[in-house]
Nucleic acid binder design. Structure first.
Lengths: 227, 227
DNA sequence: TTGAAAATTACACTGAGTGCGATAATATTT
DNA sequence: AAATATTATCGCACTCAGTGTAATTTTCAA
């Protein structure tokens, strides 16, 4: 019983990127032409199973703690075999990590959709705010708490911030390719990811008292004032 | 065979903090009064064993790769039982991580020994440079390469940077307690750790062509120019 | 010397993750 | 519709990391 109780949204997970992005099997649907892709039975089942695994995992992590939850528990609760679990996720930890790993790409995508004449830092801020706004605060807090309960997961989460920073930097450089400013862009990427970290930490520390958007703007304002 | 070959210093490891810093058993010697602490047989043996384990681990990681090296291999090569390994290290990965984890404390310590009238950023830079100067470049590169060969170790390494940042921030705040500047100190800690990361990455990428000190100053200069 | 503390070990156990191969479900082609 | 390919599911056996326990030996201190 490491992490227990937990209030709001839990049966209606939302911004889950899906599993196995780095593995090879799922996460690459047939993709019909366009308009009415039809989505196929297989697709639907796959996503349902993915969802069932994720929900079962999170529920059990909350109920019994991360370490005390075995893969057999999760598989049983999700109605699949232990072996099938590994068809969807590379590891137990990836249940939680998969909810975080898509962030980097989402931010980069949002950055690209930003008006052409925006200043770099404003563009980054807008992209991050836009992405974070789509994630329910309750989910964010629950996931964050669970991640803290396992050192390995926590470490991988922090490592993913480094990935985000790298991806962000590359996206920035692609858009503002002036070599003179490369260092500045690197600094901005650091700063932006730092602001995300600060906001996320504060959100968890406060238990969701203030909305993540406010915390993000606050962090950006504070750091921007010092630059 | 993930990571193979490896040139220079390997039998003469140096900046190893020792094991189990977070566990509970070793790493807390009886500590004689002062002057000639006498060091005791027990101490000496403990450190020798620690060294044997570390050297055996690193050698095997290089020879056969991180994953292909089992704890039995390491224990056998170090002349101890498998069970005794866990008396010295919490996990296989900690062999590598222990070489990194002491950095934070060393930097904080060096920061405290800095002249009283130094500017924060200069103090940080001096502290980091001082600590990094004590670590042989060859060791740094080998360790870094090994760490990259295991995703878990790599993640934990990056997580340790976050710890360093936090420790650094707290040390700074302790010395410049003005609440007005708290955000700036946080930014400086981010920046400093970022500079370390940049320098360390470049060192590995270049294979040690330029000394770490130069790279550090370069990174600090570049980032400082943008602030 | 004697008794406490620390170090070493064996043994047995849990649980994560993998390789292999079989079978069933879905999709695609003819 | 039947044949064929692809994908999903599963079981089994295996390796290996890591832990709990308890016994034994080595070092230290009184």
């Amino acid at each position: 019983m490491d992490v227990a109780e937990g209030r709001g949204g839990l049966e209606k997970r939302s911004g889950a990127t899906g599993g196995m992005s780095a593995n090879g099997k799922p996460d690459a649907p047939p993709e019909g032409p366009q308009g009415a892709p039809r989505e196929g039975l297989r697709e639907r089942k796959r996503r349902e199973t993915l969802r069932r695994i994720t929900d079962a995992g999170i529920r059990l992590f909350i109920e019994k703690g991360h370490d005390a939850t075995t893969l057999d528990d999760i598989a049983a609760a999700a109605g699949i075999s232990r072996r099938t679990f590994f068809y969807y996720f590379k590891s137990k930890d990836d249940i939680l990590l998969s909810l975080q790993s898509g962030l980097g790409d989402m931010i980069v995508a949002a950055l690209r959709e930003t008006p052409p004449d925006t200043r770099p830092l404003d563009a980054i801020r807008a992209a991050i705010v836009k992405v974070c706004a789509t994630i329910p605060a309750d989910d964010m807090i629950v996931i964050d708490r669970l991640m803290r309960s396992s050192p390995t997961v926590q470490a991988r989460k922090q490592a993913s911030y480094v990935q985000h920073e790298q991806a962000l930097f590359e996206a920035l450089r692609e858009r503002w390719p002036d070599p003179q400013r490369e260092t500045r862009l690197r600094l901005l990427a650091m700063l932006a990811v730092g602001a995300m970290r600060l906001a996320s930490d504060t959100l968890s520390r406060e238990g969701g008292k203030r909305p993540i958007i406010d915390l993000l703007h606050e962090a950006f304002d504070a750091l921007e004032a010092e630059i």
